[in-house]
C-alpha cells in the first residue's frame, strides 16, 4: 500500500462517514493499485475474475476508502480467493458462509465498509440460506457474486445457475433442473439494491460496484464472469451482454417485471430502494454492577 501522508490525513473516520452523503467526492487521490496486495491470483489466464478485481479496486479508489477500513469476506471457490489479492483486511472462511461472517463483523463493527464476494455455488447453493437472510436483514454491505455457472475449483460441475441442458461429467445429460434466479430471489427476500454486471464491461462494472457500496443497505451485484477453462463457450458473453435501458426503480413490481423479463444478459441496476437497514445501536448505557443488581434477592 503506497499512500501519501496527505492522503491519509484526508481519510480520517469522520470524513469517511461524511462521504456517504457527499457524492461525487471532489478529491480522489487514491489509486486502484493502492488496494492491491502483492499476491498474484491463482485464477486461470483469461478468467473473468481478473476484470472484477480490477473494477473493484477502481471503485474503491473512486470512493477513496482507506484500505484498513475495508474488510473483504469470502467463502470457498475461485472467486473467494479474492481477499488475498487486496491490501484491505480480509477473511477467507469456509464454503458458503461468507455472508454470516460478514453479518457478525458488521454487527460488531458498524464503522467498517464490509464487502462480501463469492461464486454462484458458494452463494446460491451451499450458502443459499444465508443469502436469503442477508437479503432480509438488509445490513449495510455489498455482495459481489462472480457467476460463471460452474464449480471451477473442483473442475467443472454444474452449479445452481447452470442451464439444465449443460452437459458435464457429473450430469452427462444435463441436470434437468431450472437455473436459480438470483435477482428474483434477492428481490423477494428483501435486498435493497439489486444489479447485474459483466466482467467484460470494466467501466459499467466499476460504476455498479461503486454505487452498490454507496447504497445504504444490502447490495447484491450479480456479476457474470466467464470461466474460460470449464465454460469456454461463455466467451460469447462479450457479444451478448448489454446495458439495461431503464432507470433503477424502487418499485418492486416494476423491478420484478424487469428481472423476469430479462434473458439474463442485461446489465444494470434492477432495483434500488430506501429500506430499513438492520443496524442496532451499540452504546453502553449501564454498568455491569447495575445489571448484576437484578440478581440480588
Amino acid at each position: 500500500m503506497n499512500m501519501t501522508e496527505a492522503t491519509k490525513t484526508q481519510m480520517n473516520k469522520a470524513q469517511a462517514v461524511e462521504r456517504l452523503d457527499q457524492t461525487p467526492v471532489e478529491v480522489r487521490p487514491a489509486k486502484p493499485n493502492d488496494y492491491l496486495s502483492q499476491n498474484h491470483p491463482v485464477w486461470c489466464p483469461g478468467c473473468g475474475h481478473f476484470f472484477v478485481l480490477r473494477a473493484l479496486t477502481k471503485a474503491l479508489a473512486w470512493l477513496n476508502r482507506p484500505p484498513e477500513e475495508l474488510a473483504m469476506i469470502t467463502g470457498i471457490g475461485c472467486s473467494s480467493r479474492l481477499p488475498a489479492y487486496l491490501s484491505s483486511y480480509g477473511f477467507h472462511g469456509v464454503h458458503g458462509r461468507a455472508l454470516a461472517v460478514a453479518a457478525g463483523l458488521k454487527m460488531a463493527r458498524p464503522d467498517l465498509t464490509v464487502l462480501v464476494a463469492g461464486g454462484d455455488g458458494d452463494g446460491y447453493s451451499i450458502g443459499g440460506n444465508h443469502f436469503l437472510h442477508a437479503c432480509r436483514r438488509n445490513m449495510d454491505m455489498t455482495y459481489l457474486v462472480m457467476d460463471n455457472e460452474v464449480y471451477g475449483m473442483t473442475k467443472g460441475q454444474p452449479s445452481p445457475t447452470s442451464d439444465p441442458d449443460w452437459h458435464s461429467k457429473l450430469a452427462p445429460h444435463g441436470t434437468g433442473i431450472t437455473a436459480f434466479n438470483p435477482l428474483g430471489v434477492a428481490l423477494a427476500a428483501g435486498a435493497s439494491f439489486i444489479a447485474r454486471g459483466f466482467s467484460g464491461d470494466p467501466k459499467g462494472l466499476t460504476k455498479l460496484i461503486s454505487d452498490g457500496i454507496e447504497h445504504k443497505g444490502f447490495s447484491v451485484i450479480e456479476i457474470k464472469s466467464p470461466c474460460v477453462t470449464f465454460r469456454p463457450e461463455q466467451k460469447a458473453w462479450q457479444k451478448q451482454m448489454r446495458p439495461l435501458n431503464i432507470e433503477p426503480t424502487p418499485n418492486k413490481l416494476e423491478a420484478a417485471q424487469a428481472i423476469h423479463a430479462s434473458d439474463g444478459f442485461d446489465t444494470g441496476i434492477f432495483y434500488q430502494a430506501d429500506q430499513p437497514v438492520y443496524a442496532p445501536a451499540s452504546e453502553a448505557t449501564h454498568s455491569l454492577d447495575e445489571i448484576e443488581q437484578e440478581l440480588v434477592l
Partner: peptide
C-alpha cells in the same frame, strides 16, 4: 450461520 457470525464479530 451463528458460528460464522461469532467468527465475524471476533475478527472485528
Amino acid at each position: 450461520a451463528a458460528m460464522n457470525m461469532v467468527i465475524g464479530g471476533s475478527f472485528g
